[in-house]
Simulated assay, not measured.
Amino acid sequence: MKHRTLDQLHSVADVNPLSRLTTRAEKIERWAELLDRNPSRCLTALTTTEHVHLDIREEAREAGSPLTVAFEDPLLRVSGLQSDTYGEAKRFFELSDWQLHEIVCSCHVGTTMPAGWAAGRVRRIITGNGILAWLRSRFVH
């Protein structure tokens, strides 16, 4: 291991040791941004999450899934994301089973999905969809 000063690290990486995402919205938006960086990236879906027993669902993971994209990010890891499992994503992003199912389950897209599609699903958690989101956009600023 080669020791470097903080100034040297800044020349090769975006380093901010105090930076942590603290709110649910910040974490979810970061995840969406990561997915949008390569919107055509082919990601793996998790298989029928709604039909898997709860104990097994909590440990479910697929290499190359939208959850993997989140876990690959140093900022999300330093903010507390511990793995790319379904249960950890549910805990860290403060999602319901239904919300996470909408993002990662194969029943919506088949075995793979483009990262941009997943990013849109992630953002809908914050913005909502349908008539309620439209009303919110019209009356809440």
Score class of each variant (00 low, 15 high):
M1F: 08
M1S: 15
K2Q: 12
K2W: 05
H3F: 13
R4L: 15
T5W: 04
L6G: 01
D7F: 01
D7A: 08
Q8C: 05
H10T: 04
H10Q: 15
H10G: 02
S11P: 00
V12K: 09
D14H: 06
D14R: 14
N16E: 15
L18V: 04
S19W: 13
R20P: 01
L21F: 03
T22K: 11
T23A: 07
R24V: 05
R24M: 07
A25T: 13
E26P: 09
I28V: 15
I28N: 10
E29V: 02
E29D: 07
R30D: 12
E33Y: 01
L34K: 08
L34H: 08
D36S: 14
R37T: 00
N38F: 02
N38G: 01
N38E: 15
P39M: 09
S40R: 10
C42E: 14
C42T: 10
L43H: 06
T44A: 14
A45D: 11
L46C: 07
T47Y: 14
T47S: 14
T48M: 05
T48Q: 11
T48A: 08
H51F: 09
V52C: 05
H53P: 10
L54N: 01
D55N: 05
D55F: 04
D55Q: 06
I56N: 07
E58H: 04
E59H: 08
R61L: 11
E62W: 00
E62C: 12
S65P: 04
P66R: 10
P66M: 12
L67E: 10
L67C: 10
L67T: 03
L67P: 06
L67W: 04
V69G: 09
V69K: 05
E72P: 00
D73L: 04
R77H: 02
V78T: 06
S79K: 12
S79Q: 08
L81A: 11
L81P: 07
Q82D: 14
Q82W: 02
S83F: 12
D84I: 00
T85P: 01
G87L: 09
A89Y: 10
K90W: 00
K90V: 00
F93C: 02
E94R: 13
E94P: 00
L95P: 09
L95R: 11
D97M: 01
W98I: 04
W98C: 00
L100Q: 02
L100M: 05
H101N: 14
E102W: 06
V104W: 03
S106A: 14
S106R: 13
C107M: 04
C107G: 02
H108A: 14
G110K: 13
T112P: 00
M113T: 12
M113H: 03
P114F: 09
P114M: 10
P114W: 03
A115H: 07
A118Q: 04
A119M: 09
A119R: 07
G120T: 02
G120Q: 11
V122R: 03
R123S: 08
R123L: 12
R124Q: 15
I125G: 02
T127D: 15
G128E: 12
G130L: 08
L132S: 11
L132Y: 07
A133L: 01
W134R: 14
R136H: 13
S137R: 14
R138P: 00
R138E: 06
V140M: 13
V140R: 15
V140K: 15
